[in-house]
Amino acid sequence: MIQMEKGERKNVYKVYNKIGRWFAENRYADSVEKAYLNEIIQKLPQDAKVLDLGCGDGKPILEYFINHHVNVLGVDASEQMIELAKINFPSTSFLLKDMRELELVEKFDAIIAWHSFFHLPADDQPDMFRIFRQHLKPNGILLFTSGTERGEVWGMNGGENLFHASLDTTEYQTLLQSNQFKVLKHKINDPDCGGANVWMAQYKPR
């Protein structure tokens, strides 16, 4: 991605309200995340429930859990993406909500924030670790993607500029530790996963 003219920075979901259908049609079809998803599925207890934050239209991640008979709640702040997700998976529960405002009573066995968390401004990212913690059961798994350096990047998608932000690796490590997460895996520019920077951590309340 290259630096571009600035657009919507605070609420990127508004851009997905414009490009949702284009994004759903043009997103890669293969589940490049499946190695990580399989690892999570192996760690899940029976009758587990997963929270997919920034679920989009539900493909391919939410779909992958459904196909493995795992109960999933999909959350997205984009009305268009939630509408598409409900069409794709009419028997699955979805919630239209900004992840920064999430206050559910229910706790989950895993939280996935794949290519969604990094749409938040850097200043909004630290508090998300409190939200992750509050919505996970003890020993629950957190999977998210990030950048490796503090900064902002804009990328063109469907004719619209999409904002991405990141803290640096040390900041993420500190946030995870201070919120009682143990890092299970951290892979930078995973070549088997589209070059994603992947974090997998386990909530270990003291």
Rank of each mutant, 00 (worst) to 15 (best):
R100E: 07
F181I: 01
I41R: 15
I131S: 00
P90K: 01
K49A: 13
R21I: 14
I61A: 06
K185P: 03
P90T: 05
S116P: 05
L162T: 09
K10I: 15
E103H: 14
F118D: 05
K59L: 13
E171Y: 05
N67Y: 08
T169A: 11
D124Q: 14
K182R: 14
K97W: 10
L120C: 03
E25H: 08
L95G: 00
Y172M: 05
L51Y: 00
E79D: 13
E160I: 01
Q177F: 07
D109R: 08
D98Q: 03
K187W: 11
H119Y: 01
L176E: 02
R150L: 10
E103L: 14
M128K: 01
L44H: 07
G159P: 04
A35S: 12
G147V: 10
Q180S: 11
K6Y: 12
M4P: 11
G159T: 10
N197H: 09
K6N: 10
M4E: 09
D76R: 02
V198N: 02
D76V: 06
S146H: 11
E8A: 07
L167N: 03
D52K: 06
G58Q: 09
A165D: 12
V75I: 09
L143N: 03
P126K: 11
S78T: 04
S116V: 00
F144R: 03
V15G: 02
L37I: 11
T174P: 01
E152Q: 09
K18G: 06
K137H: 12
D168V: 10
N11A: 10
L143P: 04
L96K: 12
V32N: 07
Q202F: 07
I66P: 06
Q80L: 15
L175N: 09
D168H: 01
L62K: 06
Y28G: 11
D124A: 14
K34G: 02
M200G: 01
E8M: 12
K185E: 13
K6R: 12
A113L: 02
Y36M: 10
S93A: 13
D47T: 13
D98P: 11
C55G: 06
V105F: 11
V70P: 06
R21S: 12
A165M: 05
H135V: 05
I19E: 05
A196Q: 13
G54Y: 00
I188K: 15
L120T: 01
H119G: 00
V198C: 06
N67L: 14
G195N: 06
Q42L: 14
T92N: 08
L104D: 05
L142Q: 07
M99E: 06
F163V: 03
L102K: 04
H68E: 04
C55M: 05
G151S: 06
L104W: 06
V70R: 09
L51F: 00
R21C: 01
S178Y: 15
R9K: 15
N38L: 13
